[in-house]
């Protein structure tokens, strides 16, 4: 079977399991950049982030037979990446800390996060990254997955293994805290 853009991840997984391990390369192609960006954000751009990305793909391959093709492969591999990054952070006794030199992220946040007024106007991206870094840990990752990785509540719920309502609450709360933080610190 030819793999093209219309072939779903789940179909590739099925074919990789049955016929051809080489097809796993297509999944690497599809997810490498996304996972690298996600893990780098979680691991504060550490040089070890690349090893974590590699490990995420290795874990995915080793456990490919455990993947339920009724679910989304993207959520599954993000969950693997999340687990690896969280364990790495625990080992390093570090917190999630976004890098405010990341131009792409700055622009993305500025576009995506609507805090309902114009306080985001100018240096929005940078200010927002600083404010995100001041958020309580439990709010950071749901917020990042929503606004930086474009994940739905359902996918975030699967990746973080949290009830969907809790995800909604955390993201809503994070937005309120960000707004309050930005108003307090930056609005003149």
């Amino acid at each position: 079977m030819n793999i093209n853009n219309n072939t779903t991840d789940e179909e590739i997984v099925e074919l990789t399991r049955k016929n051809d391990k080489e097809l796993f390369a297509h999944l690497i192609d599809r997810y490498e950049a996304k996972l690298a960006a996600y893990i780098k954000r979680l691991a504060a751009n550490s040089p070890e982030a690349e090893d974590l990305v590699q490990q995420a793909f290795i874990n995915a391959f080793v456990n490919l037979n455990n993947f339920d093709t009724d679910q989304k492969f993207s959520s599954w591999i993000y969950r693997i990446a999340h687990n690896l990054a969280v364990n790495w952070l625990k080992k390093k006794k570090a917190n999630i800390s976004l890098d405010d030199d990341d131009e792409a992220m700055r622009l993305r946040l500025k576009d995506k996060v609507d805090l309902e007024d114009d306080l985001m106007a100018k240096e929005a991206g940078t200010l927002l990254i600083d404010a995100i870094n001041r958020l309580p840990e439990k709010f950071k990752e749901p917020f990042m997955l929503k606004y930086l990785e474009d994940k739905s509540y359902e996918e975030i719920s699967f990746i973080l293994r949290l009830p969907k309502n809790t995800v909604g609450t955390f993201i809503g709360r994070a937005k309120k805290l960000l707004k309050a933080d930005l108003e307090k610190n930056y609005v003149r």
Binding site: K21, F24, E32, V53, F61, N65
Partner: peptide
């Protein structure tokens, strides 16, 4: 990264766990 992982897959350096 891709070639590193795929090389391990080809050499059976990493194996899929049985269903």
């Amino acid at each position: 990264l891709k070639s590193k992982i795929m090389e391990q897959v080809r050499n059976n350096g990493i194996k899929m766990k049985s269903r």
